[in-house]
Amino acid sequence: MRVITGTARGIRLTTPPGLDTRPTIDRVKEAVFSKIQFEIEGRDVLDLFAGSGQMGIEALSRGARHCDFCDLDQRACDCIRDNLLRTDLEQSGEIYAIDYLRMLSFAQRTRRYGLVFLDPPYQQDDLERSLEHLANGDILTDDAVVVCECGLEKELPETAGCLVKGKSARYGKVRIEVYRRETR
Score class of each variant (00 low, 15 high):
E132P: 14
R86E: 14
E155N: 13
K35C: 10
Y100G: 07
E90S: 10
C70K: 00
G93D: 04
P120F: 06
K165Y: 12
L72D: 13
F117E: 05
D73A: 09
L84M: 05
A59D: 01
F69K: 05
K167E: 15
L72P: 10
L101P: 15
T159Y: 09
K29H: 01
L89M: 10
K154I: 09
R111L: 09
R129C: 04
S168Y: 11
I80P: 03
C79H: 08
F106Y: 14
R86H: 11
L131W: 00
R102F: 11
E30V: 04
D26R: 06
N83G: 08
G42H: 08
R62Y: 10
L127I: 13
Q124E: 15
I80A: 05
L140V: 04
G53R: 07
E41K: 00
Q74M: 15
E90D: 15
D125P: 04
D138Q: 13
L140E: 07
E39A: 09
D26H: 10
P121K: 00
L118I: 03
E39P: 03
R81V: 09
R102G: 13
Y100Q: 08
L84G: 01
C150S: 13
G93R: 03
L72M: 01
D99Q: 08
D125A: 08
Q124L: 14
L60K: 07
P120N: 03
P120D: 01
G166M: 14
L104E: 01
E149G: 03
G56K: 04
C79W: 00
P121C: 12
D47G: 05
A97D: 15
I57H: 01
L115Y: 07
S105L: 10
Q123V: 14
S61Y: 03
D126R: 09
G51P: 02
Q124W: 15
L140K: 01
A59Y: 04
S168H: 12
F33R: 02
D143S: 10
V145G: 00
E128G: 11
C77Q: 04
V28L: 06
C148L: 00
I95S: 07
R112N: 12
D142C: 07
V145R: 01
R102P: 10
L72F: 10
E155M: 07
D78A: 06
R27D: 10
Y122R: 02
E39N: 11
L101E: 12
T159L: 06
N83Q: 11
R27G: 02
R170M: 05
S52Y: 05
E30L: 08
C67T: 09
E94I: 11
D125N: 13
G137E: 00
